[in-house]
Computed example of a mutant assay.
Amino acid sequence: MSSPASRLIVPVLGFGLIVAFASSYYLLGVLAEPLAAGTGTTPSLVFAGLSGAFLISAGLSPFGGRWVDRRGGREVLTAASVVFALGLAGLGLSQGPVSVVAAILMLGVGMGVGFYGPAFAVLVAIHGEEAKKPITAVSLIGAFGGALGWPMTLAMIEWVGWRGACFGWAGLHLLVCLPLYLTLLPDGRAGPRPSAETGRVRWDGRMIRLAVLFAGAWWIATAMSALLPRLLGRLGLDPAEAAGAASLMAGAAVVVRLLSFLTSGKGSPIAVLRLATLLHPLGAAVAFFGGKSLAGAVALGQGAGNGLLSVASGVLPLHLFGKANYATRQALILTPARFLQAAAPLSYGVLLDRSAGLALLASSAVCVLMFAMTFGLERRS
């Protein structure tokens, strides 16, 4: 595909992911306080609703993968845009605890089917096993969902209030993302249908290893997203210093994805995966033993490692298993990660309450397990 429209597919998918992540996964980081104050509820209930949304997202993930393989990524992404918009509009109209939680759970439905999976599947349908570079490019653009999401939401709250921020994100889904998807993305239903045999995905040792690896990665990533400033505070930084050091995590994730894009096709994906699993323990060790002045190393290590792992979640299923049933297989591999993600802030917070050293030791031990899971992965005919 070399038409002008086809060259816009990667930017469109990347932009859609920025909006999806910023308006759901990262939304409540700055919206929870004014939302709770404006609806007579508490931030703790808001975040409990977010944990429920993560669980719904995990439960829907395999269904979303099968839906993509049957009908194509465009249909799933357009449906997700509508669901996100409904959840955000419901949040903007909410008047009490029940309506707040219901709207957040609706966002969980969108998260279950509207993140990286269908976007990567669109690229695999177009490029086949040559989709590594566009997958990396979309992952790179999507990383700005975290870097831009919080400041954009905060700016909208200051401009039009928290309800206006919810309606603003809903409008972006309906008025920008939805028309772009319908206009520029290929209709996956035009492709060949899988037979009953080729449509069945069976678990094997490689899928189990990847599932364990990415479950650990998502547990750490979610814990760091919620608790990194607090962790840095326990390492000796004051609140302003901790906030500044925590921002290094998003920057490192963007930089390594850019490097991965520029070097796409060079080196072994499994070797890169092994490196990614070791970056968090390396940063944790430097931060713990290096004292306050080097505390930001854990943010750099986590950001760089997670940036590479995010790319690997799209590339490795394609590299190891090929394009057949790609979306279903990727969704199955990542489903345990989605469930474990819901427990990450609470479980890591308990460890951090004991000591920063214990928390860093636990997350580093998980990374060692992830490193072990990289052995036994190889591509087969």
Rank of each mutant, 00 (worst) to 15 (best):
P194A: 06
A190S: 10
P186L: 02
R202C: 13
E197A: 09
V201M: 00
Y181F: 12
L184K: 00
R189N: 13
L184G: 02
R202K: 11
L182K: 14
I208D: 11
E197P: 11
P192A: 14
G188D: 04
F214Q: 07
I208C: 10
F214W: 01
L185W: 00
L210C: 04
R209L: 14
G205A: 02
A215T: 14
A211I: 06
P186A: 06
T183K: 12
G191I: 02
F214A: 05
P192L: 11
L184Y: 06
S195N: 08
M207E: 08
E197M: 10
T183H: 11
V212S: 10
R200P: 14
I208E: 12
G191M: 03
F214C: 06
W203G: 02
R209D: 11
R193K: 15
A211C: 14
I208Y: 04
T198A: 09
L182Q: 14
L185S: 01
M207Q: 14
G205W: 04
P192C: 10
R202H: 13
D187Y: 00
S195Y: 07
A196I: 07
R189L: 10
P194L: 03
T183E: 10
R200V: 15
R206F: 03
P192T: 13
R200A: 13
P186I: 03
T183W: 15
T198E: 15
R193I: 00
A211G: 07
L213T: 11
R193G: 01
L210Y: 02
P194G: 05
D187S: 01
A211Q: 08
L213G: 09
R193M: 01
G205C: 01
V201F: 00
L185N: 00
S195G: 13
D187A: 03
A211L: 06
A215V: 13
R193F: 01
P194E: 07
F214K: 05
T183P: 01
M207R: 05
R193Q: 07
R189I: 05
L213P: 10
R189C: 05
L184P: 15
A190V: 08
D204P: 09
L182T: 15
Y181I: 04
L210G: 07
R206P: 09
S195F: 08
F214E: 08
D187G: 01
R193D: 01
R193C: 03
R202N: 14
R209Q: 11
G188C: 02
R209P: 11
R209V: 09
W203K: 04
A215D: 10
L210I: 04
A196L: 09
G205Y: 03
W203C: 04
R202V: 15
T198H: 08
W203H: 06
A211N: 07
R200C: 06
F214S: 05
S195D: 08
V212F: 08
L185K: 00
T183C: 08
L184M: 05
G188S: 03
